[in-house]
Simulated assay, not measured.
Amino acid sequence: MVNAEKERHGGALVLEGVTRRYGHRRGAVQALRGVDVALARGSFTAVMGPSGSGKSTLLQCAVGLDRPTAGSVRIAEKELTRMGRRALTRLRRERVGFVFQSFNLLPALTAEQNVALPLRLAGGATRRARDSAREALARVGLAHRAHRRPAELSGGQQQRVALARALVTEPEVICADEPTGALDPATAEEVLALLRQSVDELGATVLMVTHDPAAAAHADRVLFLANGLLVDEYRGTAEEARSARAGAVTDIARRMRTLTRTGTEVAV
């Protein structure tokens, strides 16, 4: 109880009673049903669930890309649900980093220019943005690819550039939407290790949606969604999360299979 209270009041990201309904009356769809989630600073949380369980809606509501029908969302104690569009855009630019399955790099820009883009959009000086971009690329092992365009990089390298772009503003929260979905297993492990490193060494807070138990095993905590409800939670040890041990992967996979079969609850 003490830890839960600490996460709610000092968390990097807090959702309380978040409901998201699409449509009206008989045709309404409840994507989220009173979800409560608190992410502590410097933590790594994965979200899993069957198709249509509300994973993407949870991620979108968490960072202000979608507005809840009811409930509240706070990032660094700032209430998103009361913000106007411009304020939300500014908050996301300054406090949220994004990593997508499809990389979302601008093809005409070099790796360095893609990473520097959030700083340039925020009005940062060109030289300072360039220096910060180079530092972020070095952090993900791509300093030697700074002047290459996305088409000249492998899929894994493009995702590492995307991660550098997410880290360059030193955001409060990094949201990763299926970040390894387009990668082969070996490359996926490299990207997940970098996400894990950003938590352990930089104090980043990561919220990741994934369908892959092996990816989820890198997280400190796995939340399971079904029919818009949080139905179970898995917490491993710090050592298990850093090494994605086979036992953790097996347990997460078992829970996911049960959840997919029942659609409502997970056997613990």
Score class of each variant (00 low, 15 high):
V168A: 06
R196Q: 07
D251G: 06
A216Y: 00
R21Y: 12
Y22R: 10
R92T: 07
G155S: 06
L153K: 03
R8D: 13
D36G: 06
R148K: 15
P179A: 06
L80Q: 00
V96M: 09
V206T: 04
Q60Y: 15
G11D: 08
S243N: 14
T260Y: 12
R86A: 13
Q158L: 03
M256W: 09
C175T: 14
K78D: 12
V199Q: 05
T264W: 10
Q158I: 07
M1P: 11
T45D: 04
V47F: 05
R95C: 09
T110S: 12
S53H: 02
E190K: 11
V18L: 01
T81K: 03
V140I: 06
L142E: 04
E240D: 15
E239F: 00
R90W: 11
A217L: 07
R33D: 13
P107H: 05
E172G: 01
G52V: 02
G64K: 09
A38P: 07
K55F: 03
Q60D: 14
R257T: 13
A28W: 10
R196V: 02
T258K: 11
R196E: 01
R196H: 09
R95M: 12
A70F: 06
D131L: 14
D36N: 15
P213M: 09
A267G: 13
T57Y: 03
C61V: 11
R145H: 10
D36E: 10
T169V: 15
T69W: 07
V206Q: 02
L119N: 07
Q60A: 14
L39C: 08
C61R: 04
T180D: 02
S53W: 05
A182S: 15
V173H: 06
S51E: 08
D131W: 10
G27S: 11
V191Q: 02
Q113D: 13
I75V: 11
A136N: 04
P171A: 08
V206R: 02
F103W: 07
T89L: 11
V161G: 00
R20A: 07
H218I: 07
T262R: 13
